[in-house]
Design a protein around this nucleic acid. Structure first.
Lengths: 242, 242
DNA sequence: CGAAGTCTTGAAGTCGGTCAAAAGGCGTGG
DNA sequence: CCACGCCTTTTGACCGACTTCAAGACTTCG
């Protein structure tokens, strides 16, 4: 039983831009259905040209690239509301793979409908480009982290980003939120070894800055953590939703 | 004396998509003029919301981010044909700074005209999004490099990317092209120290893979360099031009 | 209860950083 | 024409942040 766009739970979150009733009807036209996937399911593969595009409704996932030597680089964590498949939709080829970490519900669109956005609904096309720009912005920050931050600063940066994002999505309650990934995932996101990531998390725990255990992230002193990470604690900008 | 879009030298390069005569006329309407800047000139600042957007006509530049502690991360090198200011144009805020490395000629557009693209010329808007997607693709690769490649592989990766890009722009002749940056720039792009970058370049030179001296990059054995870097030697995809 | 996956901890090794200094190019001014 | 200062590149020695290797503890599940 697919959710109607009209009743989409995401739109109520203040992380997202408001949509006009007309826009909602327009999007509904292109929603092909919903897909529910189990943890670990591959959603899109690097190099593929999927005819389907997705928006994450529930659950979380990973974007990652595999190098020829087998190393894995996690590019970003996928939160509810994230659009999946922009590169395939625009360039015809994904630059990374995507897989579900938790059970996920995905809103499914037809790749061809993207062009309709541009032709019939410039506002929607603009929103799509906005999402691309947001992603570029984030990746620039990630590059800075990998290039210039120490392991401790890098881990702190990642946890701050995750926490602020979760907060804007209403996932946080009492300084705590679900973050159902493995330490290996974070290690692969930061270009660190699992062992060092583990020890670094231990330091943050001992310093009473952040506790991440059993899939729950608790940030005790956001400001101190952000200072260590050299980032602002401002909420992520309100973003469009597709 | 500003170049007419009609006579734009870039459009002849096979790195770029063809534009219809109509598209060219459309772009000409929004070209406010040309700006010539000297080496070292800042073009856009991180956090700024410039009313002007640019396309690089001649010359090369750098995108970079500064961390609060003074470290600099070079995000990418700017080649002729690159669009500058997409983030400001779409989100209203640049995520990085941009400066000229050589003397540059920039084609100047009004930020407000972007919206005209979406409203009147969906094809042009699509091209803009394409550029954003290409950038995202590239940054994903950069993240992988910073996270997973060794210094030697990273330097090799950067030189391969630069060389292939230059080739597609017709900048290469006899296995050689201009690459007028400092070792410090490359070091900041790869998150390495200047000293180590220098020594690593020395290794590539000794192995007869790549010689980069006095602003000239010569790649003797592209395939071997690419193998070391773990990248394909395929030309970058044909991209749109604004 | 055993197997597999994840987290944790310790010890040893290395890649790349930091420090220091010298060499080379280039423009300016005496 | 040479001397000087400034910038970039190069080289050597030492150091440390992070990796690798190894093994034990804890959880989950068949």
């Amino acid at each position: 039983m697919a959710t109607k766009c009209e009743n989409c739970p995401l739109r109520r979150r203040d992380a997202f831009e408001d949509l006009s009733a007309e826009d909602v009807r327009f999007m509904q036209r292109f929603k092909m259905g919903e897909m529910i996937v189990d943890p670990g399911t591959p959603i899109l593969m690097e190099g593929s040209n999927s005819p389907q595009l997705y928006t994450a409704l529930h659950g979380m996932g990973l974007r990652y690239k595999l190098l020829p030597n087998g190393e894995r680089q996690v590019v970003s964590f996928i939160f509810p509301g994230d659009f999946i498949g922009l590169q395939a939709g625009i360039m015809g080829e994904m630059g990374h793979s995507v897989e579900a970490t938790t059970k996920m519900t995905l809103c499914v669109f037809d790749r061809a409908s993207l062009w309709q956005f541009f032709k019939e609904r410039p506002e929607r096309a603009f929103s799509l480009t906005w999402l691309a720009a947001v992603e570029e912005h984030f990746l620039g920050e990630a590059v800075s982290t990998l290039g210039q931050r120490t392991a401790l600063q890098g881990v702190a940066w990642a946890l701050v980003r995750v926490f602020l994002r979760g907060k804007s999505l209403g996932m946080e309650r009492g300084g705590q939120m679900a973050f159902p990934f493995k330490q290996q995932d974070l290690a692969d996101a930061l270009g660190l070894s699992l062992v060092h990531t583990n020890k670094t998390l231990g330091i943050l725990r001992k310093r009473q800055l952040a506790h991440w255990t059993e899939g729950e992230l608790r940030v005790s002193d956001l400001q101190a953590l952000a200072d260590l990470a050299m980032v602002e604690t401002t909420a992520p900008p309100v973003r469009p939703i597709l």
